[in-house]
Every structure is written in structure tokens, then in C-alpha cells.
């Protein structure tokens, strides 16, 4: 899982982009702590052909990206 909590844009998306480039995983989980990052990671994930689901977890958000 990519823990991108504590980072503001564009860092969470950069972390996801690196993972996609390195391993092109079928599924991955990303944890972020702000709505802006939820929107940005979702947008990036969709552009890379992933389905993205978002689950709030307390103050944080767990995003699941899957192909």
C-alpha cells in the first residue's frame, strides 16, 4: 500500500505514477488524508485505465485502484 498521508498535491499522484511506471500493478491501495488528493489520485488512476473506489477511514481515505 502507498501511504501518501501528510503529503499535499502533487506528491500523492507522483507516488502512484512511480508505482504504475515501475510495476504496472493490477490493483493497488493508496492512503491519503485530504479530499484534494482523493480527487487527483482518482483522476490520474482513471486516466491510466483503473477503476477507483474511495473508502473514508476516520480522517483518512483509502483508495483502491483496480484494472
Amino acid at each position: 500500500m502507498i501511504d501518501a498521508r501528510g503529503y499535499v498535491c502533487p506528491m500523492p499522484v507522483i507516488l502512484v505514477q512511480k508505482e504504475v511506471k515501475a510495476h504496472a500493478p493490477q490493483t493497488m491501495e493508496v492512503m491519503v488524508d485530504n479530499s484534494c488528493s482523493v480527487e487527483n489520485v482518482t483522476r490520474f488512476g482513471s486516466s491510466q485505465g483503473y477503476q477507483v473506489s474511495v473508502k473514508p477511514q476516520g480522517q483518512d481515505f483509502l483508495l483502491t485502484l483496480s484494472k
Partner: peptide
């Protein structure tokens, strides 16, 4: 800055 940056980084 975000618009130009994201265009360069993510084509967004």
C-alpha cells in the same frame, strides 16, 4: 502553478 505543473507531470 498547478495547471502547468500537472500538465508537465501527468498530462493533466
Amino acid at each position: 502553478v498547478g495547471g502547468i505543473r500537472d500538465l508537465m507531470l501527468f498530462r493533466d
